[in-house]
């Protein structure tokens, strides 16, 4: 089975990529760049870093811009997946969906129309266990966005480690947050992972935050030897 991975550059899509690559051949990455900050499907603060991540992984990247209107962005995604089928002969598409039936159902519909497998290696996994796996596997993952109370700018740019996982789990119990950000509470950017041939070094960044909403924006970065 040749697979394309829907790729935001966050921990879930890159962990899903690793799990897919354990069993089948991953041949390309697919990224939608949304202009809509409210998009339920594709918004992520450091989407431009996906080009560096793809280079670090040694995989071609299909990158498609979308205005991010609710139904139009699904047409754009379908076109991007269709391009992966045409250019790389993928038999299936991998997603990092864990709990979101909104995302999962829409991608299932597109894959069904195109006649390709829809693979969700993280589906329904325990969120704390997923965070622990990300750390245990050696991912260097930073918080690149916070969007819910009581998270604030102090979290931005920080690396996910065992202590942070405990704090996120405690907040999930107290405030009902999804510990791994399934409800859009946090966004992440992966700077290094086992399949990366090089790691990403952040040269310049900025934090833009107001109250319980903010992003850690990578302005300049490069690949360096591991």
């Amino acid at each position: 089975m040749k697979l394309g991975v829907l790729f935001s550059g966050g921990k879930d899509s890159i962990l899903a990529l690793h799990k897919a690559a354990e069993k089948e051949k991953v041949v390309c990455l697919i990224t939608l760049v949304s202009e809509n900050k409210e998009s339920f499907m594709f918004h992520t603060p450091n989407i431009d870093v996906t080009a560096l991540q793809a280079e670090a992984l040694g995989l071609p990247l299909i990158r498609k811009a979308t205005a991010g209107e609710p139904e139009e962005e699904l047409k754009d995604l379908e076109e991007a997946i269709a391009q992966a089928v045409k250019d790389f002969e993928v038999d299936g598409v991998v997603t990092g969906a864990v709990e979101s039936v909104y995302q999962a159902a829409r991608i299932q519909q597109i894959c069904n129309r195109l006649g390709v497998w829809c693979v969700n290696p993280l589906w329904k996994r325990n969120q704390k266990a997923l965070l622990e796996e990300v750390v245990a596997e050696g991912f260097k993952t930073v918080i690149s966005g916070v969007f819910a109370y009581p998270l604030d700018k102090t979290w931005l740019g920080k690396q996910i480690d065992p202590e942070m996982i405990e704090r996120l789990v405690a907040l999930s119990e107290e405030y009902g947050l999804s510990p791994s950000g399934e409800g859009g509470e946090i966004e992440t950017t992966v700077l290094d992972a086992p399949m990366f041939k090089k790691k990403i070094e952040v040269l310049d960044s900025e934090v833009e935050a107001q109250g319980n909403s903010g992003v850690f924006r990578i302005k300049q970065a490069r690949l360096t030897e591991k």
């Binding site: 089975m1 897919a20 089948e24 693979v119 290696p121 329904k124």
Partner: peptide, 16 residues
């Protein structure tokens, strides 16, 4: 066997 990912997606959630 054609889909080696079916176990984690459709079986493990039931087991859990």
């Amino acid at each position: 066997a054609e889909n080696p990912f079916g176990f984690s997606e459709f079986v493990l959630p039931i087991v859990s």
